[in-house]
């Protein structure tokens, strides 16, 4: 196991290097000129644009820019954000907690809820419960998250006044200590609910299909023939096997916890990294974007590795070497 992890970690390195090259090439190939954007849209003269291009280092030949960038990364420096004029890493890391709080909370709730509902539905295939859950899952799966978020705001914030409209804090009150925690919790509910509603159907569909499939397997029939209770067969064997695909999807989704909730962050004014990423795209903030993509590449790689490890625990047939 230890050797397996070590070897996998080594293969992550070329993956990440490749992603750096690709990201750099793609960003510079995409339309849009940062110098024009930072010089100002409707007032900049050509001289100003040229001066800004020079300041941003974009007047150098592309291969040289790339070499300088790689050299920087190797020294542990991701450069300075064009937009914020600050080193990239702190800009990213100060937004990380808000995003992780939102995405991990909702991912965990969604996978548990999805799997539980699937277990319920799969044991009563084609019952009213099954039918109802399937219908709901299709409905929510088809909803765009930003639209659903806005509807939740209209209902629960504007109409019922149960929750705040947007943001992460009540800035007027400026709470500290445990009241601040409660305040953040209150602001967290609607965005988490939005993400849970759109994500749960994925886990539900996968788990339900796979539970239903497991229950038709020969070994289940064998267990039944031995007189083992349905309860025990389901909990101990069918469900456990059926959860493998769910774990895969969950593991892969963890790779996207950092930027995957951008639309929900925009709708709820949540100060996370998804929004930071989109802002950086619109502003052609190359250093910041490359930094975010680099971190993204690392988290996706690690999430895949983690998924493999959990697999081995769940499925005794898999032995990692």
């Amino acid at each position: 196991m230890g050797r397996y992890v070590g070897r996998q970690l080594l293969t992550i390195i070329p993956t990440i290097l490749l992603s750096v090259v690709l990201n750099f090439a793609l960003l510079h190939a995409a339309p849009g000129d940062p110098a024009r954007i930072y010089a100002g849209f409707d007032t900049a003269t050509n001289d100003q644009i040229a001066a800004v291009r020079h300041e941003l280092g974009l007047d150098k030949p592309l291969p040289l820019q790339f070499a300088l960038y790689v050299n920087q990364i190797l020294h542990g420096n991701l450069g300075e954000s064009f937009a914020y004029h600050r080193p990239v890493l702190p800009v990213i890391f100060e937004r990380l907690p808000a995003t992780l709080l939102l995405t991990i909370t909702s991912a965990i709730i969604a996978v548990i809820l999805g799997a539980l509902l699937a277990a319920v539905a799969a044991r009563r295939t084609f019952s009213k419960v099954d039918f109802g859950l399937s219908f709901a899952s299709y409905t929510f799966y088809a909803m765009p998250s930003f639209w659903l978020g806005l509807i939740l705001i209209l209902v629960f914030a504007s109409k019922l006044h149960w929750f705040p409209t947007s943001g992460m804090h009540d800035v007027r009150a400026g709470y500290t200590g445990y009241r601040n925690v409660l305040d953040v919790g209150k602001h967290l509910i609607l965005p988490v609910l939005t993400l849970v509603l759109v994500q749960t159907p994925i886990y539900y569909r996968i788990t339900r299909a796979s539970v239903a499939e497991q229950q038709r397997e020969d070994y289940i029939t064998t267990f039944r023939a031995t007189g083992m209770s349905e309860q025990r067969i389901f909990r101990r064997y069918a469900l456990r096997n059926a959860l493998l695909p769910t774990v895969t999807v969950f593991g892969l989704s963890l790779g996207y916890v950092i930027t995957g909730s951008a639309l929900v962050e925009i709708v709820f004014g949540w100060p996370g990294i998804g929004r930071l990423t989109l802002d950086a795209v619109f502003q052609r903030d190359y250093p910041l974007l490359l930094g975010i993509y680099l971190i993204l590449a690392v988290t996706v790689s690690l999430a895949i590795l983690l998924t493999d490890l959990v697999y081995a625990v769940l499925d005794p047939r898999i032995r990692l070497r």
Binding site: T165, V267, G269
Partner: peptide, 18 residues
């Protein structure tokens, strides 16, 4: 200054007194 990127959300936050 609260940073709210979405126009609909900002309008609702305004109507809700935030």
């Amino acid at each position: 200054f609260r940073i709210i990127p979405d126009a609909n959300t900002a309008t609702q936050a305004f109507l809700n007194g935030e």
